[in-house]
């Protein structure tokens, strides 16, 4: 709790300055159009959930936001993703810079097995060369682990292997690793789907604690999770030729009580997907 009130070096304390916006975004795998015509604005400091059945393109859309989509061979993106008005897909924008500002947590916990817990947390900081501000590496790792609600569990074994932790702890370690480079936006791709129920609850609590300090966008196949944790929800659905579209995007309470679209209502009430 106390960690959230600390101001961060290098950027304003509240994330309301950072706006993330998607304009006319199409994502391709080779010739296959996987996501079509997405327009959305993410509320700064809020949690936005992307839901939809498997193969609807929600993970693809998420990976377009920090330019991780193009890492897959033959994958490419059309359209604009604006971070503070700057189009991330403009020529000359460095994708490594983008990924430092927009952190990502994956479906399966992926700590680096040859690194200690502390080295895992600092992996991204060391890439950037100089740590932000004048904080020491020890301070950064402690702060990041506290923010990820993992400090109390690992403070006595910072020099043990990251993979010695349980699955849920590994995922929080990956969150700490993402937070250590001080991003403005945090993308989470089904962060709890590989975890047990208790670890899932911990991740959800953690998301609520991080709310306000970071703009969080989470992909989930779990509707209850979206309803529990998020402020806004986007519903995606794959139409013809397995091309995903954003069907509806609104506040979570509206989406789950009075959706405008019939297809949203059908999905939320469990009629398909």
């Amino acid at each position: 709790m106390q960690a959230i009130q600390e101001t961060q070096p290098g950027r304003p304390a509240d994330a309301s300055a950072t706006r993330l916006e998607v304009k006319d975004l199409n994502a391709y795998y080779g010739k296959h159009l996987a996501v079509k015509g997405v327009n959305m604005q993410f509320e700064p400091g809020a949690i936005t959930a992307l839901i939809g059945p498997s193969g609807c393109g929600k993970s693809t859309l998420l990976r377009c936001l920090n330019r991780m989509h193009e890492v897959i061979p033959h994958a490419h993106v059309e359209g604009e993703v604006l971070l503070d008005g700057q189009n991330l897909y403009e020529p000359g924008v460095d994708p490594t810079d983008t990924r430092r500002r927009i952190g990502m947590v994956f479906q399966r916990p992926n700590p680096f097995p040859t690194m200690t817990i502390m080295d895992n947390v600092l992996a991204g900081v060391r890439l950037a060369g100089k740590p932000p501000g004048d904080a020491t590496l020890e301070e950064i790792s402690e702060k990041s682990l506290r923010r990820a609600a993992l400090w109390d569990e690992v403070k006595d074994k910072l020099h043990k292997a990251g993979t010695s932790l349980s699955g849920g702890q590994q995922q929080r370690l990956c969150i700490a690793r993402a937070l250590a480079v001080d991003p403005e936006v945090l993308l989470m791709d089904e962060p709890a789907s590989a975890l047990d129920p208790i670890s899932t609850v911990k991740i959800e609590e953690l998301m609520r604690e991080l709310r306000g300090a970071y703009t969080i966008i989470i992909v989930t196949h779990n509707m209850q999770q979206a309803a529990r944790c998020s402020d806004y929800t986007g519903f995606m659905l794959a139409g013809e030729a397995a091309t995903g579209e954003l069907v509806e995007f609104d506040t979570t309470s509206k989406m789950f009580t009075t959706p405008k679209e019939k297809r949203t209502e059908d999905y939320i009430t469990g009629r398909f997907g």
Partner: peptide, 20 residues
């Protein structure tokens, strides 16, 4: 996921190879 984990932290391709 090891490669993507390193890339997502803002690594170059070279850093991904040498560090992940």
């Amino acid at each position: 996921d090891q490669r993507e984990g390193m890339l997502a932290l803002g690594s170059t391709k070279w850093e991904m190879m040498t560090k992940a």
